[in-house]
Design a protein around this nucleic acid. Structure first.
Lengths: 224, 224
DNA sequence: GATTACCTTGACGGAATTTTGACTTTCTCC
DNA sequence: GGAGAAAGTCAAAATTCCGTCAAGGTAATC
């Protein structure tokens, strides 16, 4: 699943260059040239945001605070303001990193990787063990119920992985679709329902208990 | 609880200076002057590590990888190696930040704060607790009254979420409708009244107290 | 190219929820 | 105290959502 990066900067040449470069490295990139556009593009649920400070209208520092109220993801300032005080201001405003222009593309890439790796690290333990002997091995992509291995298809496992890695949280179908398929579903997706049914059947058959709860009108929740 | 920071560097003067400075800002600091010492000090479970690269014996990059096998926490390289390639190597080795000497103390502090803030952000379950044992778990969409779980429908929970997240503020029905439904109500909405009634009934039944006040002619207010 | 497993779609019934409309009660102001 | 507006109550209708099934499409494997 490709990571989504949102670039917010009013310099067209820079965004164009960066965008191409990041895409070459496998990222899905969206670009905003103003604060308003940036806020609108939050709907794409970026995994990381590159934010310029000098912009017409609301400046990057303000924007950063606003973004923080909406989504949780690393925000990297990318700016020509280079004094120590600038850096401190940026970081205190809620930024996770502060990179001064001009910067090396290699360094930028390495920093982006580091931040994404960290998100990964914080959100994903290598193995999840849930109640009563159900063991989900994420790296090995295997599920065991007391010695007995249960077999799941790719999509089924992906869904189990996503839900069980975020136990007790409710996710609506769109969110699950997005997390598992990597892009937004169009229209009503019966797909999730069907996969959930299959997963439930297998888990129930083996363990005799429910792991996935339905929250009516909202989505599903992994019981832990 | 004070955050614990581990400084790993073989330069005595620098560690001494840094240590004092960080302590002045409320951190608990431990210092290691070699890789071995660093590994031993991991037992203090630091919340963040400042790591020099140039050290006798195992260098910082190697050490970083080893540390990663033991504990999960941000690692910031603090080093005199300043080429872009050095930075890339450091970040790729598993570092979360790369700060080149000489650095400003203010910037260092701001970066440390940013990293710790991020850990915090990633680990805290968002919960709202209101008076007398009523717990509203927003991400899990559950409401508890002393161990006992109360069940609410989607709209009911949405209304509870909105009101309890803005306690002591009065919202008229239109405002609530807009916040919960996402668009403006047309005409007289009996809907809100009805939902409020259901919510009140459930809360009253379980807890015996009123959480939602009517402000006559104005709207409703979540009592906190 | 055929077989197999997997993914996706559309339709349907039933269940749970949401909304509605009629009615009653409460409150405010005269 | 009474008129009128706002809020509360109730039951029934309307709607939405979920689980299920069957079937068509797609990808992978041999």
């Amino acid at each position: 699943m490709a990571y989504r990066i949102l670039i917010v900067d009013d310099e067209l040449i820079l965004t164009e260059l960066l965008s191409t470069h990041l895409q070459d490295h496998g990222y899905t990139v969206s670009v905003a040239h103003s604060s308003d556009e940036a806020l609108a593009k939050l709907a794409t649920k970026p995994n990381l945001i590159l934010l310029d400070i000098n912009m017409p209208g609301m400046d990057g520092l303000e924007l950063c605070k606003v973004i923080r109220n909406h989504i949780v993801c690393p925000i990297l300032f990318l700016t020509a303001r280079i004094t120590e005080q600038d850096k401190v201001n940026g970081l205190r405003a809620g930024g996770d990193d502060y990179i001064t222009k001009p910067f090396g593309l290699q360094e930028l890439l390495a920093r982006i990787e580091a931040h994404l790796r960290r998100e990964e690290r914080n959100s994903r333990p290598p193995e999840v063990v849930t109640s009563q002997g159900l063991i989900i091995n994420l790296s090995g992509r295997k599920v065991f119920w007391n010695e007995q291995e249960l077999s799941f298809s790719k999509r089924e496992f992906d869904i189990i992985e996503f839900l069980s890695s975020n136990p007790n949280q409710v996710f609506d179908k769109e969110r699950i679709y997005e997390a598992v398929w990597g892009y937004d579903a169009e229209g009503d997706s019966n797909v999730i329902k069907e996969h959930i049914r299959k997963i439930r059947a297998k888990l129930m058959q083996a363990s005799g208990s429910e792991y996935i709860e339905t929250v009516w009108g909202m989505g599903y929740r992994w019981k832990k």
